[in-house]
Design a binder for these strands. Structure first.
Lengths: 346, 346
DNA sequence: TGTTAGCACTCAAGGTATATGAGTGCTAAT
DNA sequence: ATTAGCACTCATATACCTTGAGTGCTAACA
């Protein structure tokens, strides 16, 4: 790699930055105006010609500006790039996403959605069952390190949640016993302040455990059975629409994908569906301008009022209805089976 | 809904079927040729004119064929549609997908990938850690119904797996004890035929349990710690490419999405990446025609040789490298933290 | 010697006119 | 009631032209 003068570096950096921003070939005038180099476009042109000869820039055609070559990008990445600071809101969001708990059952449901889209080649929507009256089946503490335990909370919907904490070995078994004796069988609304206090007393009598750790554990158990993440909705195979000629216009495709990326929209979509069996909403029956050329086929899956959700296929109006109906029929009954297996009564 | 003659029904069905297949307006000649109605195109034309007047068909413009109206589709769905039989291979595949086990850790990893694509707005690739030498920490049997138990297998990488089986209440506790005493701490290659046999003997001495159920349980435990689903790979936000003008050409977009949908391709993609730290492959450095206008930025996450994987961002060559580098740096260290928390040593 | 203004030149992008052909509706014959 | 024949329509494709952004080069200038 040849040595570049400071001025050439500045110009190259400006070109790459600008091209990254706009995706349009960058002309000499734009650089001379934007940068505070105090150079005319003609001078920039000369420098750009040099940079092109050196292999850092490319001219798509004679009368266009320059774009970076692979070597230009490489030089930029190695030497020119400025440090980027991630925004605070983004980091906060990040923590939240990692904190959210997804259960095994949710996972299965989600995969069922993926199955439908694999079967039909259309975009699929699926909601996980809203969990109400979650009851604790069993709490388990498993030692997974010399000063680390894993807390497992199993509920009647077979949700298992995992957290880790530092507790010494001997306390582990005892703590599990106390927790199970006091909490097994309870619902969220049955865990009240009095119970928590009596638990804290019992535990502090028998086990030496920092208050903070105990609070963390109880908090985790409570959150597991209360209803924070109700009825999550998942979208699968959104880019299936690319395959259909009705979306050959890229702007239409973008609009549609944009629409589908907003979970609020999706929730409204599945809401409408019929009560039982498979039902289709065709074109204008959707009462939504953007969906006037789409059909949505919906089916409910359910075990009982404790666990039910919706499964939907969204595609062009000229979708293969027969195939979609058959697939939804099949998978929804498959989900019913899974629910029956996983969810325990009383 | 008006009554239609049998002939009109046949013609309407043929038109909808054909339009679903081709997405092109259907002409009278096509129907007269394809169907065995023994009618000329002129007759079909008359019938089509009738169907249009009744509201079942629409003519996009004078010199085009007909397409179904919303009412046409509705009539088709309600009365005309043929029953569709799902293929056997599809069903077999379906069973397999449901049977596959996804761990909580895999889930977290996957969400980390989603985070990166949210942060950068580029397509993200992430591999879950390949699990070797999985050891059993604890086996737990939780009663979740009057004749149903849940089998939980916790391993040193904090994977918990769930299966259900029918076992009566009293056997439950005893079985858990036996399993834990014999299996805790073992790796897959330490579970041999002799051990299994001795286990079967012990259990059949103390508990009355159908042989089939026991085999299912042991099989499940074994599969949990052996390495069937090693290093899964996930793709997130594939339709991000729609947002970039380099894919304004729908065919390019389709080609790219098609490429990304094949997991074999993805595996090759992340394989190449650098050894440590963040590294970028720009354009032709990818040595792949389809990626000549793309860049791939890769980072390894790892705790040690037991658990490591890759995280990659794929986007246009003019991607915001600074932002991508910063995001990958951040998330990969976040994953490292999670691994440290979840995975236990000896 | 490096920088700049001026100018002719190039070529992609976009707009307009023309040619093509699939499919129709209507009429007259069967 | 059905069909062959024919004039008519209109989206699509192609060719042609216009426009303008950006260049390279030359000559003047500091």
């Amino acid at each position: 790699m040849m040595d570049l003068s400071e001025r050439k570096k500045k110009i190259l950096q400006a070109i790459v930055d600008e091209y990254i921003r706009t995706a349009d070939p960058v002309g000499s005038r734009a650089i001379s105006k934007k940068e505070n180099l105090g150079l005319s476009s003609a001078t920039i042109r000369n420098e750009m010609a040099d940079l092109e000869e050196m292999g850092y820039l490319i001219q798509p055609h004679t009368s266009a500006g320059r774009i970076p070559s692979d070597e230009g990008y490489r030089f930029y990445v190695n030497s020119l790039m400025q440090y980027y600071q991630i925004g605070l809101e983004a980091i906060a969001q990040l923590q939240q996403v990692f904190a959210a708990r997804v259960t095994q059952l949710d996972n299965l449901i989600r995969r069922a959605g993926a199955m439908v889209s694999a079967l039909t080649d259309y975009t699929t929507l699926i909601t996980t069952p809203a969990r109400k009256h979650e009851t604790i089946r069993k709490i388990d503490l498993v030692k997974i390190g010399y000063d680390k335990i894993m807390l497992l909370v199993v509920t009647h919907t077979a949700q298992s949640h995992i957290m880790t904490a530092k507790i010494d070995d001997s306390s582990c078994v005892r703590l599990a016993e106390i927790l199970n004796k006091n909490l097994a069988g309870l619902k969220a609304d049955e865990i009240n302040f009095g119970l928590i206090q009596s638990l804290q007393e019992q535990i502090s009598e028998q086990i030496s455990l920092p208050a903070k750790v105990l609070i963390n554990i109880l908090n985790f158990v409570y959150e597991t059975i209360s209803e924070p993440n109700d009825a999550e909705i998942y979208l699968d195979n959104a880019n299936a629409i690319l395959k259909y000629p009705e979306y050959a216009d890229i702007d239409k495709a973008r609009e549609m994908v944009g629409f589908l990326e907003d979970k609020e929209n999706l929730k409204k979509l599945v809401e409408g569906g019929g009560e039982e069996g498979i039902s289709a909403r065709i074109g204008k029956e959707n009462n939504l301008e953007i969906l006037k050329d789409c059909s949505i086929v919906t089916v409910n899956y359910s075990l009982d009022d404790r666990a039910s959700g919706k499964l939907a296929v969204i595609g062009p109006k000229r979708m293969n209805y027969a195939k979609v109906f058959a697939s939804l029929d099949r998978i929804s009954s498959e989900i019913d089976k899974i629910l029956k297996e996983y969810i325990s009564y009383e």
